[in-house]
Design a protein around this nucleic acid. Structure first.
Length: 155
DNA sequence: GCCAACGTTGGC
DNA sequence: GCCAACGTTGGC
């Protein structure tokens, strides 16, 4: 199983929004970056787990965990002119953009803040912390997963 | 709101 | 294929 980190701006879609969805499940739509799309298409499979990360907010950080419950399929919002994620180059034959469905596993009682991650030497190599990194879906190693989960829950 | 860093676009 | 201009991301 591969582990991931999913970024979202909580003003747009927060972990509480995911928790409120039927089945605590939601399509992770709106990915408009080729590298992130290719990760979903080529490397992500049903059963993979990920961190839910809040970006562009008061306390950026990891706020919970989720599971991939449906593998990559066309992101129809790209073909919807009314969607903020509309892409005029997307068509039914060439959908161009993909999404997966994710289900909430756990909402952490407290955020593991970006500041805390940066202050943890064992996480020095983490993709999230690399300068200028903007990838909205990125791989997380087993070691990073264990460290952050331990910080969040003490497990 | 600022701005550094990055990705994408499009003219040539 | 180069690269300048532009748009976006995201921490602060």
């Amino acid at each position: 199983m591969q582990r991931w980190l999913f970024k979202s701006e909580p003003d747009a879609f927060s972990i509480d929004d995911l928790a409120a969805r039927p089945g605590r499940t939601e399509p992770w739509d709106g990915i408009r970056n080729y590298q992130a799309r290719n990760l979903m298409r080529d490397a992500m499979t049903v059963g993979d787990e990920g961190f839910f990360y809040h970006s562009s907010c008061a306390v950026p950080g990891v706020v919970g965990t989720l599971r991939v419950v449906r593998g990559a399929y066309p992101d129809h919002t790209a073909q919807d002119p009314a969607s903020p994620y509309h892409d005029p180059k997307a068509t039914p034959a060439e959908p161009r953009w993909l999404m997966v469905d994710v289900q909430l596993i756990e909402r952490f009682e407290r955020t593991v803040a970006l500041k805390t991650l940066k202050a943890t030497p064992a996480l020095d190599g983490m993709a999230l912390l690399r300068r200028g990194n903007r990838l909205s879906i990125q791989p997380v190693s087993d070691e990073e997963w264990a460290i952050i989960l331990d910080m969040a829950t003490g497990r």
